[in-house]
Design a protein around this nucleic acid. Structure first.
Lengths: 316, 316
DNA sequence: TATTCTTAATAAGTTTTATCGATAGCTTTT
DNA sequence: AAAAGCTATCGATAAAACTTATTAAGAATA
């Protein structure tokens, strides 16, 4: 049994197809066939059921794949250990970001980060929280930025910042007279909210998503914006809630429509999350330091109440 | 990087000597030299400091060895998974046993076990608790039988039985008149106790060890007995404490010197212990079932108070 | 039903690599 | 100073991993 064989098994299990798996692992299809046969022979089991189309894992195969993934992960961590020792921070790093954080946070730290750690090849992808969790599990993402807490056993979280929500209330709206608003004032029926993202637990729901595209040399991404929501709001379709950072680049005329909450302001907790196996921790540390440092100046609220998909948590 | 290379690194790290490590891994010394050099080159680090005699690990080397052990362990578990699937229980299994359990428990279950699981090649070794813990960590033992609880983070315990202590009190001893004795009666000054083993926490100390040799077809072992202690006691050198199972094969004349404790009788907890990585769990399960089943009939006390090296625990 | 496509297995040949035996070179021991 | 103990290096060899080309089997299509 070799690590290479285990990698091949993982590739075939993932793509359910020897030919595709061969491409992904940069070898020819016969190589995969032979190596996997050899492993099956050595263990005296069948890993794949080749009679099914597409190919399927056998029962033992499923268990073996779990363990194989574990071993391959752990073996990759050896390079991590070496890098850490050398103080080297580099290599490819795949970061997921939820749509409601993407457009505001990314421009704030990205330039800074790639200047500070030029050896890191950042690949950023906009994904929903569910997609992020799935990809952290199967190793397609190294880390992600999402609203927390997630209460997911195998995912660790490092808080980046707490971001208060701000009411965007057009003149026509019933709450426009109130200087500062309260959570109790909110009514789901005269509010505009986006589908994706996290949600107010108690009946008030959801923030956030649209489309927009963006490309650069060092990284790749796909993004969304809040503009549409504000515009719809201006059309008198209701008030909306904006995460604080989104209110910073709104135009002056619209700025007057912003109504802060009385403290404690509802807020979301935004964290850098990663798999508990803690692969590539140096880069994760570097990201955390960079982002937390930069955002610290931008958000200075003190008394907030965290809103999450899971639970309400007091913080100050 | 291959699993084989990691095995080689582990062997050299353990023996601090390429030549010896080569013997243990059944290859020649040049093979080790080259493979380890290759790994060092691939990672661009030095794993060993060859200027020191004997050879030493570098700082990175130490961290790498930890991770290497992890990977090798996890890779061995693959065979476990396959065995489990097939319902196959076999292979070499190294079991450590503390001296005070060896002579009484072993004869009770050994025959039974090797008959039931003939494919398992049991290698039994008598060891102190400290030696057992060390060897469970470095993988030289697969499991062990010892007095618990150990409160060791990386070792799991499965209780086999609770074994009460019985006073062996010669006619000359001050307590001989009492039919049943209490822990409060005990005095360290007129008691004979052995060095090794576990101990009464509150000042009263230690049980257990002598030497004796034993060999058979399916297994290998080295053992000790309690005879000496009883004989010394007969010579008027003080009373002693015997674990219950030891009192079963004492001669009739001496049996009259046995004095049970008033309930709750002090007792020790004897467990099957193994590393938290849970390698070879099928065999561990098999051992547990066999032993617990056999001992159940032999010990029928109901109200006992567990004595351990760590803490006092109530049980009934 | 025949034929075309897809995909994995097999075969044959090449390249790479793991290992060995012999030995050189360095250090420690006697 | 000689001997012993160790690791690195060299050259050779057998094993393995991989490639290209081909076959075989099953599914899709004509």
């Amino acid at each position: 049994m070799t690590i290479t064989q285990l990698r091949y098994v993982l590739a075939v299990a993932e793509h359910q197809n020897f030919t595709k798996a061969a491409e992904k692992t940069f070898v020819t299809q016969p190589t995969l066939s032979m190596q996997i046969q050899k492993l099956e022979e050595e263990l005296a089991i069948l890993i794949f059921d080749r009679s099914k189309k597409p190919i399927e894992l056998t029962e033992v195969g499923k268990k073996l794949v779990q363990q194989a993934r574990n071993i391959v992960n752990e073996s990759e961590r050896i390079q991590d250990i070496v890098d850490q020792q050398k103080g080297y921070i580099g290599g490819e790093f795949k970061l997921g970001v939820i749509p409601t954080v993407m457009p505001t946070l990314l421009p704030m730290f990205l330039h800074n980060f790639i200047k500070k750690y030029p050896k890191v090849k950042l690949k950023i992808e906009e994904l929903t929280t569910e997609a992020i969790i799935e990809r952290l599990h199967d190793g397609h993402l190294d880390a992600a930025i999402a609203a927390t807490p997630l209460q997911n056993e195998s995912i660790k979280e490092r808080v980046l910042y707490y971001e208060p929500f701000v009411g965007y209330i057009p003149p026509s709206h019933r709450l426009n007279q109130k200087k500062k608003i309260d959570v109790a004032d909110l009514d789901i029926d005269d509010m505009l909210l986006l589908e994706d993202g996290h949600c107010f637990r108690d009946g008030i729901v959801n923030l956030c998503k649209t489309q927009k595209s963006y490309d650069e040399d060092h990284f790749q991404l796909e993004s969304g914006s809040f503009e549409t929501l504000v515009k719809l709001s201006n059309e008198g379709l209701g008030m909306t809630l904006l995460p604080y950072l989104h209110t910073l680049d709104i135009n002056d005329k619209e700025k007057s429509n912003l109504h802060f909450f009385n403290e404690p302001s509802p807020a979301r907790e935004v964290s850098l999350i990663y798999h508990k196996s803690e692969l590539k921790m140096q880069i994760i540390e570097a990201l955390h330091t960079t982002i937390a440092g930069i955002v610290k100046g931008a958000i200075t609220f003190q008394n907030v109440e965290i809103i999450s998909p899971i639970a309400k948590i007091k913080s100050d």
